[in-house]
């Protein structure tokens, strides 16, 4: 399953709920204000790292990160960037998509 989170984890608990409830091996795509969760050196880095330990794969929409001044080198290790084409690929390669609004 692909999980999509578009809220900042500093502001809402959507990411936390997502990570609590996503099955091992799921993909998690961060978009819009959700991209700030992928910034390095925040308390969410550990949360992402824990997720990776149980095979969650993290993606961030590069355009949304760039808009907020988060260049690729500012993103936490292990997080993969995708463009809109990659977004579409993620959606089509997963049977179900869950958006955490």
């Amino acid at each position: 399953m692909l999980h999509i989170v578009n809220k900042s984890p500093f502001e809402r608990n959507a990411l936390e709920s997502c990570l609590r409830l996503a099955a091992d091996g799921s993909a998690v795509l961060l978009i819009e204000d959700g991209v700030v969760a992928a910034a390095s050196n925040t308390r969410f880095g550990g949360m992402l790292a824990d997720g990776m330990k149980r095979d969650l794969k993290f993606f961030v929409l590069s355009h949304d990160a760039a808009a907020r001044g988060l260049a690729p080198e500012r993103l936490a290790p292990g997080v993969e960037t995708v463009d809109y084409g990659g977004f579409v690929d993620l959606v089509t390669s997963h049977d179900t998509v869950q958006s955490w609004l």
Binding site: F10, D33, D64, A67, G69, L70, A71
Partner: peptide
């Protein structure tokens, strides 16, 4: 304050999201 600090980030590039920077 809070996520508001991101408003002042250097190097914002909004070309990809089609919104005005």
């Amino acid at each position: 304050a809070d996520d508001g600090v991101y408003q002042l980030m250097k190097g914002q590039d909004t070309e990809g999201i089609g919104m005005k920077n």
